[in-house]
Each structure stands twice: as C-alpha cells, then as structure tokens.
C-alpha cells in the first residue's frame, strides 16, 4: 500500500501571537511553527500501518517554517520519502494548502492519504476534507484508528460522548486522523541529525495550483475576555490558604 501523509506547520501557541499591520492576518515575521498535532498522529498512524502490514510512506509538506526539521524527523521515524513542496506563501490559507496538495498528489501513485483532521489555525476550512472534496475521493474525518481489510480500510470515526462508528472505506481515499491508536513515537535528536546527513528531501514545485474562492477576512484580533476569573495572588502557601477558604465557604472541605 502506498500512503501519503500530509504535514502542516501551525503557529506555536507557546509563543505570544501577534497580528500584522493589515489587521487581517497573523504576523509571521517572528512566528515560530510546530507540526500540527493531529498531523503528528496521522504520521504515527501511517508508520503503524507500515510496521504491521507493510506500506510505503511518503510525507509531504509545504515549504515554510522549520519544515525541513519536520521532514527529516519523519524520515528518521521511518518514512520512506519526504517531499518539500515549494511555491506557496508562508502560512497559506487552508484552501490554498488543499489545492497545493492536490497538485502534488496528482502525479503520485497513492492508495491512502492520511492527514490531521483539524489544525489550531483553521479558519477557511479543514485541509483534509477540502482536499477530498477537490479530488472527489472518499473521505472520513475525525478517526482514531485505520486498519487494512481486503484491499479496503476499516476506520473508527469518533462522535461525541465516546461513541464511534467503524466504517469500511474503499481505496483510494483520504482519511482525516484526530489521533493514532498509540502516542506518536519519539525519535532522538541525534538520529534526526544523522538522517540529515544520510538522506535527501525530494523537492517539488506546486505553483499553478487551482485558486479557490474563500471568505473575505475583515479583521483578526485577540478576544477581550467578557468574563474573567478572579485571580488569586501571593506565595504558593498564601494561595493554598485562599483556595481552602473558598472551598470551605462552599462546604467542599470539612
């Protein structure tokens, strides 16, 4: 089975987010990026399929942020090929990303496309489903498990309250992963460094991808908390006393 895993870089929320001068976008000048969490699970899901059933895993990512680290790390974890897609602006819209991935995938032999189902910076859509819509491929999102079954796949799609449905999907298909059946594997930095020396990234140009209509962004801003917690200040011991008082008033401690 040939599996393509689409990896997306998203803003690192540990850093303070800034809005740019236009007031309609994040300021990317100093922005740090991390790999979208559910994409990390999509990669793990692909590698599990490879380990257990055999597969060729190709990872693809758009070229912005520290994407090379991400791609080499994927190779170090066990991906067979890593493709860097050039030609899009930094932090592109989700529809531009979906169209770019469509262009990249159209020349590839691929049975299964795995990608995260949801990214923290989604505004004009979720890449996985948009891509499936553009490519007219079967799609199931919000999955927690993908298993091969007679040339098809069985996926578990999560609903609210812990309910899930098992769905059988013919290939080729796009599957949106929320989490893999086990935590993403860890790869030591030394091994990534080693991979940088011994492996090469494939580069592909995706200029000329389809341009899709999207919403018109009027402004991007930080929310002003309408309601805010009453903050407790002081040393840990002081704060502990205050908390116990609050609990005592409510009869939550003796």
């Amino acid at each position: 089975m040939n599996i393509a895993v689409l990896l997306n870089m998203v803003p690192d929320l540990v850093e303070e987010l800034e809005i740019d001068a236009s007031g309609t976008a994040l300021d990317t000048q100093w922005m740090r990026y991390v790999l979208n969490e559910s994409d990390e699970h999509a990669l793990e899901q692909a590698l599990l399929l490879k380990d257990r059933h055999g597969a060729r895993v190709t990872v693809l990512a758009l070229d912005y942020g520290e994407v090379e680290d991400t791609l080499f790390s994927a190779l170090a974890k066990g991906a067979d090929e890593a493709v860097k897609l050039a030609g899009l602006s930094e932090a592109p819209s989700k529809r531009a990303a979906a169209a770019a991935f469509k262009t990249a995938l159209s020349g590839m032999a691929c049975d299964l496309v795995l990608t995260g189902v949801y990214a923290i910076d989604d505004q004009d859509g979720h890449t996985a489903g948009l891509l499936a819509g553009l490519m007219d491929l079967p799609f199931v999102g919000v999955t927690r498990s993908v298993e091969p079954a007679d040339g098809k796949v069985l996926v578990q799609k999560e609903y609210a309250g812990g309910l899930a449905a098992e769905i059988e999907v013919s290939l080729p298909a796009v599957i949106g992963v929320l989490s893999a059946p086990q935590p993403p594997r860890y790869v030591p930095v030394a091994k990534i460094r080693e991979t940088r020396k011994t492996r090469k990234l494939t580069e592909q140009d995706i200029t000329g991808a389809e341009s899709l209509p999207g919403p018109t962004i009027r402004r991007m801003f930080k929310p002003e908390a309408a309601e805010h917690a009453q903050m407790l200040e002081g040393s840990p011991e002081d704060v502990a006393k205050q908390i116990v008082m609050i609990l005592a008033e409510r009869g939550l401690v003796p």
Partner: peptide, 21 residues
Amino acid sequence: TSSGMDLASLLAGSLRIPLIV
C-alpha cells in the same frame, strides 16, 4: 462536530465555494 466538519469541508471542496469554520 465530527459529522459537521466532514460534510462542510467536503461540500466546500467539491462545490468550490467559501467555507468558514
């Protein structure tokens, strides 16, 4: 929701119309 996110993205992608999530 789980089903809403899937449907909204599929429709926007296949009909090539704007989506806001």
